[in-house]
Amino acid sequence: MWLPVAVFLGVCILICLVRLILGPKAPSRIVGLDTINTLVVVSMVVLGAAFEQVIFLDVAIVYALLSFVTTLYIAKYIEKGKF
């Protein structure tokens, strides 16, 4: 019952990916990227429940924290115009 949910979340990620590719400027693209990060974390939790593998959830925790740092870093870049 969990695999269809993961596929559905994949469709949501594809919808956000369109915004990431179109997005008029860098700020709009990073909004899409942030949404994709959240959806990836959730789909990892769902896949962990589907395959009953705890390692998926550990990867999800690390991914959530690392993507947060990435988002902050790109936001800093947009603010200053340089790294």
Binding site: A49, L57, A60
Partner: peptide, 9 residues
């Protein structure tokens, strides 16, 4: 671990 991931999100 699901709970910890939720707190992180």
């Amino acid at each position: 671990h699901a709970f910890i991931a939720l707190v992180c999100i």
